[in-house]
Design a protein around this nucleic acid. Sequence first.
DNA 1: GGAACTCGCCAC
DNA 2: AAACGTGGCGAGTTCC
Length: 467
Amino acid sequence: MITSAETYSAFKLIHEGILALARAEAVGIRVDVDYCIRTTKRLDREINYANKKFEASDLAAQWKKVYRSEVNFNSDPQLAKVVFEHMKIEPKKFTEKGNPSVDEEALKMLGLEEVDLILKVRHLTKVRDTYIGGYLRENVEGIMRPFFNLHTVVSYRSSSDRINFQNQPNRDPLLKKLCREAILPHKGQKILCADFKGCEVSGAAAYNKDPQLIKYLIDPTTDMHRDVAVDCFLTTPDQIIKPVRNTAKSFFTFAQFYGDWYKSCAENMWKEMQNEDTHKLKSGIILLDHLYDKGIKTYQSFEDQVKKVEDIFWNKRFKVYKKWKEDWYADYLKKGYFTTLSGFTCRGVMDNKQAVNYPIQGSSFHMLLLTFILLDREQDRRGWKSRLIGQIHDEMVMSVDPAEEREVIETIQHIVTVEVPKIFTWINTPLVIEVETTEVNQSWYHKKDIHKKKEEGHADYQWLDAA
DNA sequence: GGAACTCGCCAC
DNA sequence: AAACGTGGCGAGTTCC
């Protein structure tokens, strides 16, 4: 893959972008070093305790027999050898290289009683060594300066390293708390996160100009993920609750946008639906029972249903998007390259998924990058104490002086609704920003949607009503 | 003793 | 025809 900035504006975006990101690196991110030291000690104790319990297990006894003095309970290759060669358990899942897998899913299929213990140690060591360990290694006098690169990613997205600020735990509640409690705003300030709602969907719409997709993005009374959930689960729109909507969103719609097919979508959704606490209808009926009543009594019949949903998705709902994918790839095959809306040319061997994903991924990030550049200028021009400190693909992270918070938010809104569309004239849907903040001196873990706070009656945010 | 590889797993 | 795109990183292991 060879990419190049073909136009002056594309060159300028990278040039200005890397300078703005370098300024964020210079500001840096504050780390709660005492917390990291305390937490490392606590994790050491918990890991030791879990390891002691594991050493008393049957699996550990077998392991010691095989590896004797070489035994290392942290080694996945050793685990695989003990389980699959020595204990002769039939492997059900394989790695990309074709070896028996010992990842979380594979282990759960083996039915070993030690699985929970192994997974617990994996989670805790990951937090200790990758995340907390990274903060301790990289901070100097309580400030770490993760790099944000614009020269490493084939699609012209960014990457981050030392530490990678773009993969801090967010999904698993325990990992999220343990890690994000360590990350603080600068003294006397708040952390403020501003992320683009549906950034890549907007990016996709700019390329494919699909009227149905655009309608979903323009009309707030519509809801794409709810509608897809209705198709998948054969229900009425009012019965779709958030976890069910999320399952359709993550495992059908986004997966399909990236190029997945119905079988793997069906398998993943089926797995999610086994959680009957979260996967029910608004009426309280369990989703699996509901599907049973609708005649979907087995996995196979659910898969058949998802196949139909895939057909509706691409041949009815988003048929213009589908046509664009086909035309875009055909054009690339003919010319040997394509040029993105933000002005970058990609050459070299790509399959059809890469050829349609790269431009969307790249230009979507460039909407954020341009916003970042303009905000970086504005914080200087206005002499704010508030500073940009990082970026996560479709989200900006700032350390904000509370006295400036209102102006910061208004400025961001102005940039994304007025300035960015003036420069990127190819954007064809409204850019929507969602803002979350912490309280003063609170860690990143405590960030909350300010609108939700308003619902809870926080008078501090009444000015928002007027805005 | 370090480079390169594999695996697992975190993010969008 | 095949079947989810882009990264970074730690640990273990193998190779030179």
